[in-house]
Amino acid sequence: MAAEKATALVLRTTDYSESSRIATLWTRELGKVRVLAKGGRRLRSTFESALDLLTVASIVLLRKSSGSLDLLVEARVVERFPRLTRDLKALYAAYYVAELLGDWTQENDPHPKLFDEALDALRTFGSPEVPTAARLLRFETVLLRELGYAPQTERCAVCRQTIPQASEQAFSAAAGGFVCPKCRNGRRGLVTVSRSAWQALRLLEGAEAEDAWKRIEPAEQKELRGLFNHYISYLLGRRPRTMLYLGE
């Protein structure tokens, strides 16, 4: 039972006993892990305050055999995101990030790019330079790509033909992207977005300059929020609990 080191983001904690706690951690090196933190509820525990929700911690854990919880032996705070305690929109966006990472990723399946993206999003939420809504859309775009659900934007998700320019574009969650006018016929559950929102989605995917998505207008942010709410709920098979707090 060798000790392993990792950098972790705390996604969830639940009390286990009078003094212990079970934590769900999203680590850069090991993916999602569930650990038992003995003494983690005590004020003067060895984990200090590293097990607070959405804290980044440097951890040491002992991996257990399949089926049992890993044992957390050390956790030290590396980073916190103080803006989350000053801006409600930022806090709700952060809760949503935690829910998506916690519920949509598998244990022991690392995604270092997604980990870095999540931390960068948490750092940026609530900053005056970048709208929280746009930063969240960017995170969701990276999440969908990393998990293999990136929406088709260039070509029709059904017939693979190039999507013609039009004032409105139709999105099919079932097909996994935008569909051309021919393939729309008879297809149910389509969501229509404006051409500018469709172009904004391409910016989020990094089709142009890497940070062009920061310039997305509020109207497009609102349209894409609706589109992502629809698509992510479809993929998860339910509406995420924290989506309610994101607003339009």
């Binding site: 607070d52 929700l53 804290t55 989350l84 305690t85």
Partner: peptide, 14 residues
């Protein structure tokens, strides 16, 4: 004094 407690305080204060 944790994230959820601070978030609750922030919500009530607003």
């Amino acid at each position: 004094p944790n994230l959820e407690g601070d978030g609750t305080a922030l919500y009530v204060s607003s």
